[in-house]
Design a protein around this nucleic acid. Sequence first.
RNA 1: GGGCGCGUAGCUCAGUUGGUUAGAGCGCAUACUUGACGUGUAUGAGGUCCCCCGUUCAAAUCGGGGCGCGCCCACCA
Length: 732
Amino acid sequence: MSISKHYQPQKIENKIYKLWEKSGFLKTKISKNKKPFCIIMPPVNANGPLHIGHAVFVTLEDIMIRYQRMRQKNVLWLPGVDHAGFETQVVFEKELEKQGKTRFQIPPKKLYQMIFGFTQKNRKIVREQFKKLGASCDWSREKFTLEEGIIKIVYKTFKKLYKDGLVYRGKRIINWCPRHQTALSDLEIKHEIKKGKLWHIKYYLKSQKTNFQKQEKGSKNYIIVATTRPETMLGDTGIAVNPKDKRYKKFVGKTAILPLINREIPIVASNKVDVNFGTGAVKVTPACDVIDFEIAKEHHLKIIEIVGKDGKMKNVPPSYQGLTTLACREKIVKELQEKGYLEKAENYTHQISVCYKCKTPIEPLISEQWFVKIKPLAKAAMEAVEKGKIKFIPEYYKKIYFHWMKNIKDWNISRQIVWGIRIPIWYGIKNGKIKKIIVSEKKPKLPKGSDYLKKETDTFDTWFSSGQWPFAALGFPKNKDYKYFYPTSVMETGWDILFFWVARMIMLSLYVTGEVPFRYVFLHGLVRDKDRQKMSKSKGNVIDPLGVVNLYGADALRAALVFGTGAGKDIIISEEKIIGQKRFANKIWNASRFIFQQISSSKLKTQNIKLQFKIQNLTEADKKILNGLNEIIGSVTKDLDDFQFHNALQKIYQFFWHRFCDLYIEKSKKQLQEKALQEETLKILLYVLLQSIKLLHPFMPFLTEEIYQKLPIKNKQKCLMVESWPSQKPKI
RNA sequence: GGGCGCGUAGCUCAGUUGGUUAGAGCGCAUACUUGACGUGUAUGAGGUCCCCCGUUCAAAUCGGGGCGCGCCCACCA
């Protein structure tokens, strides 16, 4: 048995993965005698190559899966691929841009097919990359969010929501990205601090000048409003002040004249107005602002849509028509100034909403969209967590979850993009107006009283379908997998999608199945470099997981990602840290090599060593290492049960390197010289090695499997992967 | 404006119900080492556990206050 002096993962890892595939152990067979343990893999966005974040979740989930598999549970780790609607379309649009095209030039059907091809190509690549990381998932069960079966389930859910009155079509102010030309949910917008101006504009009163001045001596015949977006004044249909504001009491009920275009607008009172901000008087532009929209509803003000979906002015006098909002702003400010309407312009720093993808300022627009009435779903989702049916790791995320759930608002689930699941709606149209709404996947019969049917072209927010992933992927409601594995055991994902995904899964799964989707939510942090910087292509500090695997091996990468990183904390990774773990792998390799060499040069030379030894024959050193081993078997097992992966790995590292190698192996060199002790010592070396690689297997599966395959012991399983987890024995 | 988290060795972090001389990895210093491994071994330096007050026989750990840092949510025009 000659093995190389240094551990060379490149020579081993691919071979070992093939061994696992061939063994058939990756395929889950339901067995009623075992307890189920199931993780649904967060479906990967099929829109680009693997990044370090994927390596994190593959590592953590594979640790849990391998551990539970060795605990002899019936494990299922179900991989999936997400069409990732908007995200993927954005990536694809960038590709198109490179070719000098935009998506608006391509017919929707064609575009859909092009993106479909794009994702399927990526999907294959991702699968091979996950294998390189050692993911021991069941590839035969891999699911895609645009599969027929999945779409069917999503449609069923939508239908149920519609029937229960929990989904509705509404005309509302929504977040509109003028660049991507789609609505976005509240979660898909970010806030940016921007330096701007607060313009103070005089709105003169219409009221009979003379009379008014007689009544209120010395008072002005205009009201000053403050705004950061003067161009929206073209859509003003009112002015609002706080009813408690003494300064303006006399103005309420009067009429003002909109500067430049001389529209008459009423002055109304609303407690939505903050007395202390600006001048305390607000211009009301219902079509461009959420509060204004609400004030308009309260007071039945007119709504004039002045910004189009392309971000340009519409329904305005010809001189402004078609200008971008910014160009229009300049023009308006100039004219106000020239005509003396502009009181002043203050420098003002404020937050604006931007598209989370392209950072284009969001245009709040009035639009017809589909919303989920979310409060009832949120209520049930909070109760489930309150009752402990779902536990968060780390626990404090529970508080964040509750805080968000309590303040949740209706969820806009319609997107004006082609890449996604079409909302299964048909409209019966009469005289150009919607007469009837029919929920149906296929074209229904023309309803009575309608002239023709119109198909809804909007697609679902991608999170609407991925929010149903746990039960959809398992084949709700009839599939055996669903019946056996649902509710699943653990949902492991990044905290950054707690609201986007985890919360929605809990709400939708409870609503559809009546059960929680998973028992535990394990949240990992963001990967950062050694200077705590976020990894990004533009910063040039990205660590390419596959490059690392090629250089140092998947085991080293996996161990480095776990070492010193608690749940929920950001993961700091550097090449040095990975090299450190590569050294550990080498240490394990060489310890094994030493033991194998000792065996082949001893009289014990066989492939079938029985690992039994008599306690009375043991030396103090033997007992010490065996007791030490026992101790860490206990504590590592507990750590793994408690999701303390970093602690578990650190303990094994410490034990193997410093107690086993530095102390016991050194001692064994002397013991091996003594004939009476030789056989027992060899057995103990082998035994501790075997138990150690079992403990290490979830973390470093390739290396440990390779050593296991070489172990000259009796009663071996086909793979270490399915060996039984060590149990703690009484102290000797 | 509301909420969450963090502050322990030069760096990155453990420290699970309060309990000896506070730990790990990397880094650093010195020495050793041609038989598993220099990707190694041994020894060592390095800490007011952010500060103050309190609870306690006992506080890095629990409570209150302060300072500093990071993050999330939110319709101040």
